[in-house]
């Protein structure tokens, strides 16, 4: 006797391919955008300088989005990442100007970012603030205020070559020959971090538990998963990523300025959403978020090349968020109808 009749295999395979299409969809969008931009702007878009520029420009947002993604998987949100990025940037600049060695300045920025993230996590789990929106809205303001207080509201320019290397440096791969590839260091860091987070979220117990907490907090609790410890961890990761983003930005512009990262949390959230993560938690992948960040970078770059004003760019980003989520809604509805 059987508990469940095995259903014909075509149906699950069909559903799996719908899932796969959904995931590949983002990659297709990236390819499509690149093709269109190459056709529209053949002498500007596909050049090495422009592509390197895009890679460098998306780096900070991509790293912020990566930290935001880990939080969003738990059905949380981190509004503080933009301010923490600004704070991290000022901490780097100020500690260098105070005569610190570059390594210590970078560590200080990382520690500040991680510290704010830890605070967010503890405010949520120990102070029992009702929603992460509250705690991170508070630290958004606190970190931004601290950034102005520390810097006196003025930019601090002129950083060390080491810090500049991370934000603006390039490495040459595959020698000097025909296969030579020049890569912005910041983009290599982005790819390394995405690989690490992908490994962490998909291949470790803790990552599995983080998905479970986002999908069904009750089930996670029944399974003996320490929800609070994992929540503190994801906010700390998000803060640390914001710290890295601040370092990359400082290196890129060779300074620290107190308005840096204002509103950047919204771009990070946009990349996470375009990348297919669900605000209800438990869904999404680092690969999708990476593509989400690339899509936003390509859009900005393409519109710049075509002299579209930044105001229109913002309108378009809004429309793309709507479109990305609506396509997901349609896809889910189609799957449900299949069942």
């Amino acid at each position: 006797m059987q508990i469940e009749q095995a259903t014909p295999t075509e149906r699950p395979r069909l559903r799996l391919s719908a899932d796969l299409l959904g995931r590949m969809g983002l990659g297709l969008v990236v390819l499509l955008m690149m093709t269109v931009l190459t056709i529209l702007q053949p002498q500007y878009f596909p050049t090495r300088e422009n592509l390197t520029n895009i890679a460098r420009q998306v780096s900070s947002n991509a790293v912020l989005a990566l930290g935001e993604f880990v939080v969003v998987v738990t059905a949380g949100i981190d509004l503080s990442v933009g301010s923490v990025m600004g704070l991290s940037m000022i901490v780097v600049a100020m500690s260098l100007h105070a005569g610190w060695m570059s390594g210590f300045a970078l560590l200080a920025a990382l520690a500040v970012g991680t510290g704010v993230g830890l605070f967010n996590g503890l405010a949520l789990t120990k102070l029992h603030l009702p929603h992460p929106f509250i705690a991170t809205l508070a630290t958004l303001n606190i970190a931004r205020g601290a950034t102005y207080l520390l810097s006196g509201g003025v930019p601090i320019s002129g950083l060390t070559p080491t810090v500049r290397f991370f934000g603006a440096g390039e490495v040459h791969l595959f020698g000097e020959g025909a296969l030579a590839l020049t890569f912005p260091v910041s983009f290599l860091i982005v790819m390394a971090l995405y690989s690490l987070v992908w490994l962490f979220m998909s291949k470790t117990r803790t990552g599995r538990h983080i998905y479970a907490i986002g999908g069904s907090p009750k089930a996670a609790q029944y399974a003996g998963i320490n929800t609070n410890r994992n929540l503190v961890l994801v906010y700390a990761v998000s803060g640390a990523m914001a710290g890295v983003a601040g370092i990359l930005l400082a290196g890129r512009v060779n300074s620290g300025y107190p308005t840096a990262g204002t509103g950047a949390e919204l771009d990070a959230i946009a990349a996470v959403i375009i990348g297919g993560a669900s605000f209800f938690g438990g869904r999404g992948s680092a690969v999708g978020v990476f593509l989400g960040a690339i899509i936003m970078g390509l859009l900005r770059n393409g519109l710049n090349l075509m002299n579209v004003s930044v105001f229109w760019q913002q309108v378009l980003i809004g429309l793309i968020i709507l479109l990305a989520v609506y396509v997901d809604v349609l896809r889910r509805r189609a799957m449900r109808l299949e069942d």
Binding site: K203, T204, G282
Partner: peptide, 30 residues
């Protein structure tokens, strides 16, 4: 209410909280 993580597959649910791991390059992986 079943206590299942809706977003995970049956195998992940069966092992939730008691996952098997192995060591790879110093990392504990599923």
């Amino acid at each position: 209410d079943l206590g299942l993580a809706e977003n995970l597959n049956p195998i992940a649910n069966i092992f939730l909280g008691r996952e098997m791991t192995h060591s790879f390059a110093g990392l504990r992986l599923l």
